[in-house]
Design a protein around this nucleic acid. Sequence first.
DNA 1: CTGAAAGCGCTAACAA
DNA 2: TTGTTAGCGCTTTCAG
Lengths: 339, 339
Amino acid sequence: MQAPTLRDVAEAAGVHAATASRALNPDTRRLVNAKTARRVLRAAESLGYQPNPIARSLKTAKSRTVGLVIPDLTNPLFPPIVRGIEDVLGPAGYNALIVNTDNDPDREQSRIDSLRSRQAEGLIIATAQLDHPLLAELHRQSVKMVLVNRRTDDIDVPSVAPDDVKGIGLAVKHLVALGHRRIVHLAGPQTTSTGVGRARAFQIAVREHGLDDDPARIVPCDYWTEPQGASALRAVLDSGVEFTAVVAGNDLIALGCYDVFAERGISCPDDVSVVGFNGMPFLDKLQPPLTTVAVPLHQIGLEAARMLLESINEPEQPTRVVLLPPSLVIRGSTAAPRT
Amino acid sequence: MQAPTLRDVAEAAGVHAATASRALNPDTRRLVNAKTARRVLRAAESLGYQPNPIARSLKTAKSRTVGLVIPDLTNPLFPPIVRGIEDVLGPAGYNALIVNTDNDPDREQSRIDSLRSRQAEGLIIATAQLDHPLLAELHRQSVKMVLVNRRTDDIDVPSVAPDDVKGIGLAVKHLVALGHRRIVHLAGPQTTSTGVGRARAFQIAVREHGLDDDPARIVPCDYWTEPQGASALRAVLDSGVEFTAVVAGNDLIALGCYDVFAERGISCPDDVSVVGFNGMPFLDKLQPPLTTVAVPLHQIGLEAARMLLESINEPEQPTRVVLLPPSLVIRGSTAAPRT
DNA sequence: CTGAAAGCGCTAACAA
DNA sequence: TTGTTAGCGCTTTCAG
């Protein structure tokens, strides 16, 4: 039994396919006699008619698909964002095609080509390499896109991201309130917008509180990973820079610190306090539970999807940059410094 | 500038569209003169031609898309499986459309309808409700599908899942070797195949070792979640059943136990040992690090995708049920019982 | 308000 | 080996 087509419905209702099409589509239904429309609807219902979106896409040149470009779905940062995106896309009749780039520019290029050949109507991009020529190229070709969890200064592209300045500010303020004066920042990769943004935010916050802003207190990691966080902390420890607290570029880097604490017999929070960033799940189960700057990931996804749909449906939107407010979740990894 | 079509390429190469089509498709290239083919390829290259998969799909009635039905992408169990699936699908020219059902049967129904109307060629289903009529219905309509991380006895559907009997056996054996004789199982929902499967496996293992197999030692949770794990453990504690070790239905349930330990001042592993199931990330960062039965999630994804592609490309495959071997990861949450 | 006709971009008979 | 023709299922002019 083949799936019924529009012609089958039309035939069953005793009308022409064009009329059936008009009746079935809410936007054009008013062009057709109410009675005829009802007849068509009933016929469609009884045949279990489902329109074929592929045929529709071919005709309308709209795929109702958007591409989601992320580094790695396995990173706990992304699933909540993806959920948010899908929660907006689904009800709007759109689907998301997810691709993982593993932070490999070649792979990213090829995955994006594939999305484009699949006629994705827009792109949500969560990979964060700074000054990737790809981005400029896409922009030049006026591909609709929204950046997520990252920004760019070079070109005029909408983005949705946490307010890093505020988030890092919250972390530093909390530590200062506890009495810390010598704070270190284990920054994310300086090849990512988020990495440099948070490092800059740290510098600002530290100066604001009149603390030592020696650049040696900012140590970048090569990747946003646990092992990189661990080696960055080891480097600081070995460099002899004195400190009583760490602001990590993200939660994974903070987790790396825990490894080093165990390794070197450092007690957290007695010897060193740590604050993470992002608020990934299960941080409250760690020992000590990690104080972190929680980011509204799901909402970032919602907002990004909304912006993309908007720019698809009504082009010539002004480019918006949305910054969502993070909040501090205080747990056991921060305390007053030993006096 | 419009994207070039096949006709443009054909024109540029001075051939008919059909010839260009044959030259461009590796499978039919041998039907065309090598020289002509090269000319077409060059023309395509220089125009930056990308075939339109929508038009192709319409013609061939193949969407090169498969649907991925999962409860919630946010559950750390799924991303590695999804990655595995995509790692197979991508190179094969297929794409995955992911839908979240939130374990709501209505939502599941509607999401699957939407996948089918998008002409998904097959389904990979990771939602685990037992005897869902939907499954039987899909099977009756001979929709190609593969179940993942679950099984079904009623109907003849291929599946890929961890070997629960082996996994639970590993956990029990480990505890017995440590000296435990009174072990409790906090089971998953008995409405899921995995939940009942692991409970049954627990019973088998416990008998094999000649331990007390009182059914009161198996306490089912309503969901695979932390809070449910916590309340199940509270129930056991309050029931007066004596035990020195817990085998949790999955890692989240085990995490729930940690909450109760904190609440009631129970020391793990001194008072009670716990083993989780699945091997989700960051379990090694808990206090104590969680001993768990690690499941090859990525490989489950790979295998499921391979099976689905196979059954799409060569129908009439025998129905295979693949069980992948889990392994025990011993950490700090298990130790000899207090004597 | 409804029907006729054309065509989106591609592929698959069939014919030459 | 190549071209001709037709059509996948739908929408959209244009007439009527």
